[in-house]
């Protein structure tokens, strides 16, 4: 048997893709999130409806871009939808998104707002955005973290931008919006440990349970003999690579600043410039 060559970013994206299914509107604000949706749609989940931007472009076949999500939607003749459409889909649980928080804790609370106290943060991040809406309505909440460390996987988040498990959830929310999966660079996790705590589902190839525990700022429930995350199939890899002409997955993985400028220059070459729907408005 020939081993399939793949890189860690590709393993993570494919693990994320395998969590998606059914007929949902799938939005993305990051290359990893977008590629996970694309791989799912072109392999096991053809009924997914992908958006080209965080809020529009239904019916498109998007790929991660730096600035061109809206241009893709227009040039592909995607169905234009509104912010209200997106929130209707969230509130009616017909929406999915992979979220990349700065911190996640053992009960699945997530933080993209601030490190340190909210009033005077050590690091002010961006604000809760739409995570409170997701975490009070969706039946599947999906998170990924590319640098699993005691700073990102913590006992308690500094600020709850999204609601995890706990007394507040039991009192106000029930199951709607509860965290279901976490994929990191070390493995795949759920929140099905005691009291809905973080639990390992599978280890990525070459990763040990000791490494997972050491990289986590909270206890992780480790089952005996955890399975290994299945590697990407050739079909999954082919879709993934074909839909990432700028290799933005590698940019998100490595955060290379110089690489962004080169990609920004290159991205124009990957669009159908003469598409009548775009030219019409010139």
């Amino acid at each position: 048997m020939n081993a399939v060559d793949y890189t860690p970013d590709e393993l993570i994206i494919v693990a994320m893709a395998r969590e998606l299914g059914g007929e949902y509107l799938v939005s993305a604000v990051t290359p990893f999130g977008q590629l996970a949706a694309v791989v799912a749609k072109h392999t096991h989940a053809p009924d997914l409806e992908l958006l080209a931007t965080p809020e529009s472009g239904a019916g498109s076949d998007p790929w991660p871009s730096i600035s061109l999500g809206q241009f893709q939607g227009l040039s592909q003749g995607a169905v234009p939808i509104t912010m209200e459409d997106v929130f209707d889909a969230i509130f009616r649980d017909r929406f999915r998104i992979w979220i990349n928080p700065a911190q996640i804790d053992r009960h699945g609370n997530v933080n993209i707002t601030a490190i340190g106290p909210w009033e005077r943060p050590k690091v002010a991040l961006v604000g809760s955005r739409g995570i409170p809406e997701d975490s009070s309505h969706l039946s599947q909440m999906l998170f990924y973290i590319l640098q699993h460390s005691p700073r990102t996987v913590v006992e308690r988040v500094d600020f709850r931008s999204g609601a995890g498990w706990g007394p507040d959830r039991e009192r106000h929310l029930g199951l709607a919006g509860a965290p279901t999966r976490l994929v990191t660079n070390l493995g795949v996790f759920d929140f099905d440990g005691p009291d809905h705590s973080l639990r390992l589902r599978s280890l990525h190839p070459g990763v040990t349970t000791a490494a997972v525990q050491e990289a986590s700022g909270c206890p992780v429930v480790i089952p005996p003999d955890p399975p290994i995350t299945p590697p990407p199939t050739p079909a999954e890899l082919a879709v993934l690579r074909a839909h990432d002409p700028l290799e933005l997955r590698r940019w998100e993985w490595a955060s290379e600043v110089d690489g962004l400028r080169r990609r920004w220059q290159e991205e124009r070459a990957h669009l159908p410039l003469d598409h009548p729907e775009v030219r019409r408005w010139r």
Partner: peptide, 12 residues
Amino acid sequence: TRAGLGTDVLAV
């Protein structure tokens, strides 16, 4: 709305 329930947005 239900949005914000269970989060610290309501606290701050």
